[in-house]
């Protein structure tokens, strides 16, 4: 009679479990980012592809290294490092020197995440820590924009991408001349608006035929990615609604006060510079408590 038979299994609540896990959430975010990545590769060619790969691989390697150093199980399989890498690459200019991108990816994971105790403990978005570090340290490279849809984009790199480590990337002018790009001003829509008071049309902003960061140009695809996350209930719709809504309202007030000095609120709604869309859509996942 000493045989243990579980006739009645007792459990504490909760009894209903949601089958969602970190891996599941991260995979959904990666799916939402894929169209943006593919579009940026189609738009900027080899350089964008190399940039995406470099950032992702360095992020994953750094994540693995720090887990190994902390003698914790590796958090590589949950995919969060991949997201950090993709997001970082998408916020950088397409012709960004790869060695600086690798440095930024290392900083993003090491100082933005590992130092805070790994996944779930980081108080800042790691990709944006990397981006802020690069913005402060390499101001020249991070504001050098290359034209979208240049004819040879699948055959050759932008020369600045392949700058040797610790070497200053060469000037981009000669390459631009040889790449025979017509009418490329080198300025992003926000810079055009601020310094030359030239507003880029909404259509261009939606379709992404403007200069800018690797993943920021096409507002339509970014919104589709965001919509996917909202539909799958990964992201709360209130977060982007609040961000974009307040941007619209505040800029609308200023536009009504003086329409010659301030851009139209619809221009602000399709944020055209690296400060806004590429990072803020999926990054909102991180700010949820």
């Amino acid at each position: 009679m000493s045989k243990n038979v579980h006739l009645l299994e007792l459990q504490t609540s909760p009894h209903l479990h949601k089958t969602s896990s970190v891996e599941h959430l991260m995979r959904q975010v990666i799916y939402a980012l894929m169209p943006v990545c593919l579009f940026s590769v189609w738009q900027f060619g080899l350089s964008a592809l190399a940039l995406l790969l470099t950032c992702t691989i360095v992020c994953m390697a750094t994540e693995h290294f720090f887990c190994y150093m902390a003698k914790k199980p590796s958090t590589l399989p949950d995919g969060s490092a991949i997201i950090t890498g993709l997001l970082l690459a998408l916020t950088l200019p397409p012709g960004f020197p790869l060695w600086i991108a690798a440095l930024g990816a290392f900083i993003a994971i090491a100082l933005g995440k590992a130092l805070f105790g790994g996944i779930g403990f980081n108080v800042f978005n790691p990709a944006l820590v990397g981006r802020a570090f690069l913005q402060a340290s390499f101001t020249g490279s991070i504001t050098t924009w290359t034209p979208a849809f240049s004819p040879n984009r699948f055959a050759e790199f932008v020369p600045s991408s392949l700058a040797l480590p610790f070497c200053k990337p060469g000037a981009i002018d000669t390459w631009l001349a040889s790449a025979s790009v017509d009418g490329f001003s080198g300025a992003t829509p926000l810079a055009l608006q601020k310094f030359d008071h030239v507003s880029t049309s909404i259509g261009q902003l939606l379709l992404g035929t403007t200069a800018g960061s690797t993943g920021e140009s096409c507002a339509l695809i970014l919104m589709a990615g965001g919509a996917y996350l909202i539909i799958r209930k990964i992201m709360d719709w209130r977060i982007p609604a609040a961000v974009l809504g307040s941007a619209f309202v505040v800029s609308g007030v200023f536009y009504l006060i003086d329409s010659s000095a301030y851009p139209s609120p619809f221009f602000i709604l399709f944020p055209a510079d690296s400060c806004s869309v590429p990072s803020s859509w999926p990054a909102t996942w991180w700010v949820r408590p």
Partner: peptide, 25 residues
């Protein structure tokens, strides 16, 4: 948070201050 012992205390505080300062830049 489960912060690595190398960064506990003043180290992490200064790190956070640095990142905040970068953000304000």
């Amino acid at each position: 948070h489960d912060v690595p012992s190398i960064a506990k205390g003043a180290g992490l505080t200064l790190m956070v201050a640095g990142i905040l300062s970068l953000a304000f830049m």
